[in-house]
Structures are given as structure tokens and as C-alpha cells.
Amino acid sequence: MKKLGIIALALFMQTVFAQTNRFVYQVTMKSDASDPKNVTTENAYLDISPEKSVFYSENRIKRDSILQKAFQGGGGRGSINRDQMESLRSNINYTVEKDKTNQKTFFKDRIGRDIYSYEEDRPLNWKISSETTKIGEYKVQKAETDFAGRKWTAWFTTDLPYQDGPYKFGGLPGLIVKVEDDKGDYSFDLMKNFKIAEFPTLNQFGNTVKVKRADFVKQQKKFIEDPMSFMSQGQSGGFNQTRIGGGNRGGGGGFGGGNQNPAEMRKRMEDRIKEEVKKNSNPIELQ
């Protein structure tokens, strides 16, 4: 009986650990270089299982849910509430997936009509300090690193059985509760966590193009210089695909185009894309 009890306990602990845990971070951003007083805040999810973790915008899930209900109901894009979708626009249009088994980090983001995916090739070299404090209910320890042109300070806890963090951050002996850059442009703050049944399916519109990080940077630069060249294939097709995908790099502007003049649609889309590029002129990665 004692052996059975030990086996049952072990199976129970294994089941608990195998569950996916969702950590909700509040992300604070000053993404417009021309307007440093413009601070935007939104929530993002870090879903963690023993095999992998995924970091993405909370608004993306909400938008996907609205789109799914609209199409399942047979209404299509014409039945989607434009104001509701606009209220769920996000500055976090990327997805970061960490493969725990192979210790690899993959980044996905939209450029124009397509999704570009690359494996992160820069290691995070942390300098762990002996300084500790308390953030919320967690005892945390300080660590610092230089990454992608910014100096970052993180506070991690060993109170939770995870070695992970928001965005591309990880590699510390605990879960990152807070991480921010020294300019105060970007901050990720853990707000709460709870268990979920499984990873959600994230809708993806457009082709996925796997590239090296250097090639992604080149394409991104080209898009900033001439965004409309990325939208040239199929006016309304590219317009709707990109807009639905929620990408700020080619965000488009509206649903159910109806009988709108193609030239007017293109002009409106071009103005919208240029405005989006301007709003994201202070990106999280400077190098």
C-alpha cells in the first residue's frame, strides 16, 4: 500500500508539472521615437510547458476569437465589428517560442504580407548580482545583460519552478518577474499566473518565410524604406490578409472592403502603414 501511495503521488506530481502555466505580463512601451511621452501598455502571455514556452499578445488571442466566431457564423469579414477590432490593435505583433529541449529561441513577425521566422543567434550573457529584494509575493534577485543595443536589468525568482521570461529573455536560474531597459523605454512586469489546459492555436495569415536573423533585419529595413513594395501582390488580398493578421508592419485598415475604389484603398493603406512605421520608430531591438 505504501508503494502504491508513493507511485500515485509521483503520478500526481508529474501530471501537475505537465500542465501548461500562463504568466501574464504587463508590457510598457515607448515605441515612438518622435513622442517619448507617448507610453502604451498592454498585456502579453508567457505560456510554459516542460517542452516549450510561447510569448505573445493577449489582444491577439482576443482578435483571433472574434474572427473565428465571425467565420464560423457564416458572416465573414463583413460581420466583424471594426471598432471592436481597432480597440484590440497591438504593438506586440511578434511571437517568441522557446524550445526547452534543444535550448533554441524562435522569433516570428510579419513584414508586409508574410510571416518571417528566424532562430535567435545571440546568446544572453547575464551578470548575476547578489542584490535581492521583493516584488509582490516573490523574493527576487538582480541580473543584468546587454542585448540588441539595450542594457537590461532583470529580477528573477526561484520561488517558482521555471527558468524562463518574457520576450527572448531567459537563461537565468529562475523565472523573470520584471525586466526593463536602462532608458525606461520597455518594461515587462509579471502580474499574475494560472494554469491552462493547453497552448492555444494562434491564427496565422500569409506565408511563413524561414530566414536567418540577418536577412530578417534586411527585409525589415527595406519595408521601413518602401512599405508598399511589400504589398504589391493583389491589392485587396494582401490588404485583408495583413490586416487580419494584426501585423503592425503592414497593418492595413479595415474590414469588409465592399465596393471601395482600389486606388483609394491603396492610398489609405499606404498612409496607415507609414503611420504604423512612425509609431514603431523606437523598436525594442536597436541592433
Results as ranks from 00 to 15, higher is better:
residue 275 E to L: 15
residue 152 W to D: 12
residue 140 V to A: 10
residue 53 S to H: 04
residue 184 G to D: 02
residue 151 K to T: 11
residue 273 I to P: 12
residue 151 K to C: 09
residue 56 Y to K: 00
residue 62 K to F: 08
residue 218 K to L: 01
residue 243 R to V: 05
residue 84 Q to F: 03
residue 67 L to V: 03
residue 1 M to L: 05
residue 69 K to I: 04
residue 277 V to C: 06
residue 265 M to V: 04
residue 44 A to R: 07
residue 131 E to H: 03
residue 161 P to C: 09
residue 12 F to P: 10
residue 269 M to C: 14
residue 96 V to W: 01
residue 35 D to H: 13
residue 146 D to S: 15
residue 40 T to N: 13
residue 60 R to A: 08
residue 271 D to T: 11
residue 4 L to S: 06
residue 98 K to Y: 12
residue 213 R to K: 14
residue 177 V to I: 13
residue 261 N to W: 00
residue 18 A to E: 05
residue 71 F to T: 06
residue 133 T to V: 05
residue 110 R to P: 10
residue 43 N to W: 11
residue 228 M to T: 04
residue 198 E to Q: 08
residue 63 R to I: 03
residue 189 D to C: 06
residue 244 I to A: 13
residue 49 S to N: 07
residue 226 D to Q: 01
residue 153 T to P: 08
residue 6 I to D: 07
residue 247 G to Q: 00
residue 229 S to Y: 07
residue 87 S to C: 06
residue 136 G to A: 05
residue 150 R to M: 03
residue 207 N to K: 14
residue 187 S to I: 01
residue 95 T to M: 04
residue 54 V to P: 04
residue 260 Q to T: 06
residue 91 N to I: 02
residue 91 N to H: 07
residue 143 A to Q: 00
residue 283 P to Y: 05
residue 243 R to P: 00
residue 128 I to N: 12
residue 130 S to M: 10
residue 194 F to C: 11
residue 268 R to V: 06
residue 252 G to Q: 06
residue 17 F to I: 15
residue 196 I to S: 14
residue 265 M to C: 00
residue 5 G to W: 04
residue 119 E to W: 03
residue 255 F to G: 04
residue 183 K to Y: 10
residue 73 G to W: 03
residue 192 K to L: 00
residue 252 G to S: 05
residue 15 T to C: 13
residue 250 G to W: 03
residue 126 W to D: 08
residue 236 S to Q: 07
residue 160 L to R: 02
residue 67 L to R: 00
residue 83 D to S: 04
residue 30 K to R: 15
residue 40 T to E: 15
residue 14 Q to E: 12
residue 273 I to L: 09
residue 64 D to T: 03
residue 112 G to M: 02
residue 225 E to V: 09
residue 247 G to N: 01
residue 201 T to F: 15
residue 25 Y to A: 01
residue 52 K to T: 03
residue 203 N to S: 14
residue 231 M to Y: 04
residue 235 Q to V: 13
residue 158 T to W: 12
residue 215 D to A: 12
residue 53 S to Q: 05
residue 273 I to G: 08
residue 282 N to L: 10
residue 148 A to V: 14
residue 77 R to E: 14
residue 127 K to D: 15
residue 46 L to N: 03
residue 45 Y to W: 12
residue 223 F to D: 01
residue 227 P to D: 01
residue 117 S to G: 07
residue 138 Y to L: 01
residue 220 Q to K: 10
residue 92 I to Q: 06
residue 137 E to D: 13
residue 18 A to D: 05
residue 32 D to V: 08
residue 155 W to C: 00
residue 69 K to T: 01
residue 282 N to A: 07
residue 2 K to M: 02
residue 114 D to G: 10
residue 103 Q to D: 15
residue 19 Q to K: 11
residue 36 P to M: 05
residue 181 D to C: 06
residue 50 P to L: 09
residue 35 D to F: 11
residue 53 S to L: 03
residue 240 N to F: 04
residue 144 E to D: 14
residue 105 T to C: 11
residue 61 I to N: 05
residue 111 I to D: 01
residue 144 E to T: 14
residue 37 K to F: 10
residue 125 N to A: 11
residue 194 F to Q: 13
residue 212 K to G: 11
residue 72 Q to I: 04
residue 84 Q to V: 04
residue 194 F to T: 07
residue 10 A to L: 12
residue 220 Q to W: 09
residue 139 K to I: 02
residue 8 A to M: 05
residue 256 G to V: 01
residue 264 E to D: 05
residue 8 A to Q: 09
residue 171 G to I: 02
residue 36 P to E: 04
residue 195 K to T: 12
residue 33 A to S: 14
residue 198 E to N: 07
